[in-house]
Design a protein around this nucleic acid. Sequence first.
DNA 1: GGAGCAGAGTTCGCTCAACGAACCCAGGGA
DNA 2: TCCCTGGGTTCGTTGAGCGAACTCTGCTCC
Lengths: 152, 152
Amino acid sequence: MSEAPWDRSRCSVAGTLAVIGEKWSLLVLREAFLGVRRFADFQRVLGAPRAVLTDRLATLVDQGVLRRVPYQAPGERQRHEYRLTQKGIDLHPVLVALMAWGDRYLAEDGDVPLELRHRGCEEPVHLALVCDAGHELSGARDVRPVPRGARA
Amino acid sequence: MSEAPWDRSRCSVAGTLAVIGEKWSLLVLREAFLGVRRFADFQRVLGAPRAVLTDRLATLVDQGVLRRVPYQAPGERQRHEYRLTQKGIDLHPVLVALMAWGDRYLAEDGDVPLELRHRGCEEPVHLALVCDAGHELSGARDVRPVPRGARA
DNA sequence: GGAGCAGAGTTCGCTCAACGAACCCAGGGA
DNA sequence: TCCCTGGGTTCGTTGAGCGAACTCTGCTCC
């Protein structure tokens, strides 16, 4: 088994999962991308236990994925809402990839619950693997993983 | 907050997470994409508890993401190995997206542990959002989510 | 001024999953 | 014969997720 001798302990997949891999975190982010910002709205649409939601939001703020912004609706006391940072927005491909797979393998009779369209041109959007030479790869088999730091 | 009235219960993100969202599942898949196939190798490189690993592999086989293939090395008894199915290979973008984010935000001083290159042309590979009209989108803000079948 | 209310949590038991260590079992080799 | 290795299973402990109930605060309405 020609197992590559790379250092798993600093793997980026594991690191990212340490930030957003807990239960509910990605669902919180899904809602954030759909415009949800307030605690009560997250709680209502997700149905997650309040304590867990409190913890997940705090962790995500801690990690710089969300930020807690104070605001004041007219005639209400000051509250705060949770908004995506750039670091959070950059997680968009993760959600798109999860959604695409679910759409393909879990949606019954093509009943896709949510579609993504190019704002403006309105064509459906999908993820693609492209290389810096401009080729669009046909799949995972076209990819060669290269460990860095260890031998070639 | 103009929250879209779509049915969260059949969300593809949640559905996909139900399949691969448990602890270790995505790390198992990461190793599978790197060529790991045998129980002991997964166990050694991941350091996961055996019982959990047994459960995760069984779940992934159950879900059709991996398949259990009998094989026999010369001079050894018959064993079986775990190999990606097409359904599993199609999870590749999820791992690439997680890795890309980790590389950007978690790698210290640009110390990216693993690089992906286009097999053949050897240029670095990255994920892109493209629409069916051929435009490459610049980010999440160019995407408009459209709920489908809000009221079946 | 007081009552009531909503948003945003916190606290409390309960349950269930994850953990590491130890144990098991089958086949092959010394 | 015993030992080794691969691939598990079992066990007791710890920790995370859960729903329900409670808290705190600054509104608005009477």
